[in-house]
Amino acid sequence: MSLGGETAPDPVDLMVVMEELGEALVLEPYLETVVTGAALLRASGGPTADALLDGIVAGDVRLALGWAEPGTRYEWAPQETRAERKGEEWVLSGRKSVVIAAPWATHLIVSARTEGGVSLFLVAPDAPGVTLFAYPTIDGRRAADVEFADVRLDADALLGAEGAALPLLERVGDATIAAMGAEAVGIMRRLLQDTIAYTQSRQQFGQPISNFQVLQHRMVDMFMQVEMATSAVYLATLKLDAPAAERARAASVAKVTVAEACRFVGQNAVQLHGGMGMTDELAIGHYFKRATVIEGELGTVDHHVERFARLQPEAAE
């Protein structure tokens, strides 16, 4: 198996895998490494990238992408992180915030402003000048704020062409939204299943609470939200090779639909479990927290509604 060239995974295959990972609530940084990281490496090409792609397949390489900064929100362009060419080397300085999976990563991929625009660099987390402030995330993973103080990088640390990273980040970001949406669908299916099972077993007023029509309708609404999210994820996945604006609009459709579904399904799964929804003892609390993280990742509902409105569909040929 390979993650590069002709045998690179098909987006539909990744979607199926991500849905299963979601349903099993797998915490390993698969999305960060095999979806986001591998796609960036594949697009960048070159011997360093190829070797890392092989390393991912072998299970030796784990990646984390540092893109957002304390001074930015959901736009891809870095503000304060810069890299300057000094002879054969690059010197990297700046800060990245909430780099998911960074404490687990063997390699960081870091966006930085360079003379020609925005570029991507491969950085070892233990390189001199790199400082990680690591912390857990609410869904049981790990992230870090990362500081780069005049970090010296070899020439081959530059991934792809200098100044060409912004459209690449946009494209891989949309692929990540599609794959993360598939994970969310798996999570929501489990939340719905568990909620149906719980309401059928929980007895109050002499009967299972699933007999009450107000709860039945709530679960039907949860079901419909899962169906809309699934459909939006299909749309985003099948449009990943479409022209940029069409691809991005489809990704925003998925992000908004999935985020709203995650909120509705997650909140109501807790609500219908009553007090049991507020303990750490049942699976649903853990699924709810992962769903809550996915809601905001790579842009809130507001961010993607704005983006959708801004991008005009291309005129039909």
Partner: peptide, 13 residues
């Protein structure tokens, strides 16, 4: 509150 927290809203602190 979560909207205001933005990306930092996933950190467990």
């Amino acid at each position: 509150g979560l909207i205001v927290a933005g990306r930092y809203g996933i950190a467990y602190q």
